[in-house]
Amino acid sequence: MDTIETFIEKFTEAVDFQEPVELTADTELLTLPEWDSLAALGVIVMCDMEYSKTITGNDLVKCVVLNDIYKLTS
């Protein structure tokens, strides 16, 4: 399993932020301007390709902070 720091690097690339953002495990997803349907697709692909985890849109809807997605990858 990746460290949270490595996960955040991959998450940042998957979401494709337009402006640099500071992310921590406790960052609330809804505070991120790019947390939209496109970001969801990127994160689903990341979980599949990087962690061999199949997650759904509903799984992501239930996530509140970044750490919730990190836990899905373990």
Binding site: S37, I44, V45, D48, T54, T56, G57, L60
Partner: peptide, 24 residues
Amino acid sequence: ENGNWRTEAGLILDGPAVLSFSTQ
């Protein structure tokens, strides 16, 4: 919910579901 104008007669596309279906 994304701020886009739409009507009930428009196309529904569940992006995450289609992506998961296709790639799996």
